[in-house]
Amino acid sequence: MIEVEHLTKEFVVRRGRLRRERHVVEAVRDISFHVERGELLGYLGPNGAGKSTTIKMLTGILVPSGGRVTVAGLDPSKRRVELAKRIGAMFGQRVQLWWDLPLIDSFELLRHIYRVPADRYRTSLQRFRTVLDLDPFLHTPVRQLSLGQRIRGELTAAMLHEPELLFLDEPTIGLDVVAKQRVRDFLVEINRERGVTVLLTTHDLGDIERLCERLLVIDRGSLIWDGRIGELKERYGRDRLLIVDLERPVPPLEVAGAVVERVDGPRQWLRFRGPAADLTARVAAATRLVDLQIAEPDIEEIVRRIYAGER
């Protein structure tokens, strides 16, 4: 569905007001990956890492400086209009609906923009009205919708023409827990039931953990991880934490095979690798233990470690 080979995007930035110096910034540097039809994958990275730039090259908004992109068999920047019929896109922070018009009018206009036949449009809209529960605000002007309602409208707008591939840029940003869950359920539904390929950029690791099997991580323009979430946990998650509650506050423990990561009063966090039993015995020998627990690193912790450069 998506083939990316050695993709690069450079921006020329000029600094200074009068004598403007020319700097070349590589927003995306030599990225390669493939996405199969029907995958739902997450694209993760800190702000300014090159996530949006990549998506914009995949959708034909930006012309790459180097490398090759093929989406649904097309070169996006050369065949933008043709590609646009087959993909859907939603940018969580931009409004693609008509601000002053009732929601339903936006759908009507999009139907004509995408040339969706009337009967297909009706069935398609009917389905989204049910799945996303649009009926209560279908005739409300977009500017009066809550963020959650608007995002549901935006998702419908992105899907009305039944694209094979959906790009989502921060779809859950700013949403409350309930609204987030609704969006996630929807994405699972279109992916599992309809076989739509979904590429999702997000800051929200909850999105990733609940939705994606595969994860791409980009940092400073380079792809630093491409693989299943399970593998990621295995690779970066081998370190576990032993959290011990001692009788009284003591200086950081010195035990073989573990490093103290944090101390808070009588509680200490020891990072270790390998079997926990040996370490627990060593700690118990060194001091009086009141309680202990072992924590697996969560995805947030793992991503933090990846960004921090622990490869």
Partner: peptide, 10 residues
């Protein structure tokens, strides 16, 4: 917001 127009088939 020009982005939004560019992902449409027109």
């Amino acid at each position: 917001n020009f982005d939004i127009l560019l992902v449409r088939p027109r």
